[in-house]
Amino acid sequence: MKKLALIVLPSLAVFLGIFVGSYPTNPLNLTPGAVNIIWEIRLPRTLMGVSAGIALSLGGMTLQAIFRNPLVDTYILGVSSGVALGAAIAVAFLPFAGIAPLALLFGLLAVFFAYWMARINGRISTVSLILAGIIVTALFSALLSLLELLLPSESLYALVVWLMGSLSNADWETVIYSLPGVLILAFLLFLLRWNLNAMSLGDEAELLGLNVHLWRGIFVFISALMTTLVVSFTGIIGWVGLMVPHMARMLVGPEHSRLIPATVSIGITVMVLADIVVRLLPGDVPVGIITTLVGVPFFGYLLRKTGGGWS
């Protein structure tokens, strides 16, 4: 029953993703115009949603496992501040370079910086990484503010809107840069599922024959890369990485050979449905606003229920 739901729900979401929007596209009577709209706009947009759903959810899930904390997602590593700074640099100085490459570069740079700072004598703890993430975020945000002073008003406004995260600008080009990488990393994560299980015991994983600090680094890198592969194109879509893994765990438990598929399934469903909501609203509302509106109360509930740890 659960398995069926985990297959049907994302399929349904993707189906709706392809057939819901402001342009009339009746699946039973497709006009050539409708086919074009689906092929050029809705399909890439939906696939970008799939990519974002997978990457953000698995990124959050992985970090929650290795840091044994349900209230953690990839953004604690400073990814968002890095991406924001990269985007701002692109807008301010390199209008021809495009936003994504610099956002990607700085997003990863932020993570490496935080990771480097948190690594003390070859060891890396949750607290030190969270603190390092805060430090990096503070530094990058300060640089961003400095840069914002140089930006004309319309660039600043555009940057702020861009950072809220949206799938509306997805096209085949962005999908091709994002989705295959995300799928490969997701598959890699699935292959490493048993190590991830062991790593979720914390330092005890050493007794199971794992080089804990090496694997922590590997998993941090995988989740950071996955996240930046999405947010460099879409902007910061928040809270998905916190919400989805928790829902998946409630459904199938913490064992990753079951948790990874469930997280992927729910991630796709949540992300694509959130985007469909946005499509039905007037204008071009960033989907990040919707995920935040849903995610924040959920996070609050989680915090109160778990007290910040696992019950």
């Binding site: 929007g21 402001s22 342009y23 709209i37 706009i41 809705r42 509306s168 499509r279 204008g283 071009d284």
Partner: peptide
């Protein structure tokens, strides 16, 4: 007014 491609086309 920010608007996504599909809405503009529609």
């Amino acid at each position: 007014v920010p608007m996504d491609r599909e809405k503009i086309i529609a």
